[in-house]
């Protein structure tokens, strides 16, 4: 029997979807390790402890709440130290995180603090005797790698969207703990936050992504992409490197090998050729729609539904039709 510690990431005071996915992964791992407990740690400003109930509903037996005014920013040095302290209390088989900006930063720090082997961006976790075996898409999603981790404690970060969050009703015991090091003492000082698009879900979590490429011809025409995203209601906006290089959109919108890697339910590619580096970031999307005037564009090789045509004509028509379809139910 062994317990699993999971970092339940929040945005504002709300749990992120990937936090519930990580709890689900931790629950399954604890069950497979002989029925251990899942301990979730949630950190943030005062009030963040309200997430405990939901964490219990998804399978946490214990929730450690770290509330501190300075934690309204993600204070990585302090959170890493607090998680490591907790993990050292013993009895843990694994620390599980989401592979987000936060998880990417915390994972390697924990691996060092705990001297534990780490696997990043995993899509599947299994127990095989004394080892933990994970699947991880490497080579920018082109090669699926199965990794074996030895060691009594391991650190795993889970790819957002790869594991479906499942309820597993428990009523979590809640315990308040102090940050292990002062969160306001960070050596790296944030001078300014440059916000991206407001009011849209993050690319890593959005069920629908509408992405635009150079085929839109001019920065102004990107509003067609925005309007289609608005019509879907729950869509994020993405872009190709051609577009972010030209400054039509910020770098944070870039999808592909050197940008974000996404797997939404629906990906709509508008005026995108489908270069291999772009495909590396979106080819695992469930359904792909492409609109391009060139019938031989490589994007059509991966598109479930392609329309050959001018984006300036097709996209407004699609926006109107999507609005109508959503209004009728």
């Amino acid at each position: 029997m062994a317990n699993v510690l999971v970092y339940a990431e929040t945005r504002g005071a709300a749990l992120r979807k990937l936090a519930l996915e990580a709890v689900t992964a931790a629950r399954a791992l604890a069950d497979a390790s002989g029925g251990g407990e899942v301990h979730a740690l949630v950190a943030g400003p005062s009030g963040v402890g309200a997430a405990s109930e939901q964490l219990g509903a998804y399978g946490a037996d214990v929730v450690y709440v770290v509330e501190h005014a300075a934690l309204s920013n993600f204070e990585r040095e302090s959170i890493a130290a607090t998680l490591a302290d907790r993990a050292k209390q013993g009895g843990y088989r694994a620390v599980v995180l989401g592979f987000s900006t936060q998880g990417r930063d915390l994972g390697p720090r924990l691996a060092v603090k705990l001297d534990a082997p780490i696997a990043s961006d995993v899509t599947e976790i299994n127990v095989a005797g004394d080892a933990i075996v994970v699947k991880h898409p490497g080579y920018a999603n082109k090669v699926l790698v199965t990794l074996t981790l030895s060691g009594s404690l391991v650190v795993l970060s889970v790819r957002p969207g790869a594991i479906t969050a499942k309820q597993a009703a428990r009523s979590a015991r809640v315990e308040s703990i102090q940050p292990a090091v002062d969160p306001s003492a960070s050596r790296v000082v944030v001078k300014q936050v440059v916000e991206g698009a407001k009011g849209r879900p993050d690319l890593g979590e959005a069920p629908v992504i509408v992405a635009g490429g150079r085929g839109l011809k001019a920065a102004e025409n990107f509003k067609l992409v925005e309007e289609l995203a608005d019509a879907f209601g729950n869509a994020a906006v993405g872009a190709t490197r051609a577009v972010t290089d030209d400054g039509w959109r910020p770098h944070s919108d870039q999808i592909g090998q050197t940008g974000r890697q996404v797997s939404p339910q629906l990906y709509v590619a508008i005026g995108i050729s489908g270069a291999i580096q772009h495909l590396a970031g979106m080819r695992t999307s469930k359904t792909i729609v492409a609109i391009n005037k060139d019938k031989d564009a490589p994007i059509f090789k991966v598109a479930d539904y392609g329309i050959v045509g001018d984006v300036l004509e097709v996209v407004p028509a699609l926006t109107t039709a999507v609005k109508a379809a959503r209004a009728s139910h």
Binding site: I288, K295, K301, D304, Y305, I307, V308, V314, V322, A325
Partner: peptide
Amino acid sequence: AGRIIGEGASAVPELV
């Protein structure tokens, strides 16, 4: 393998 469902705005109803 991908599939093309039509050309221009007239393909939009089928896509929806």
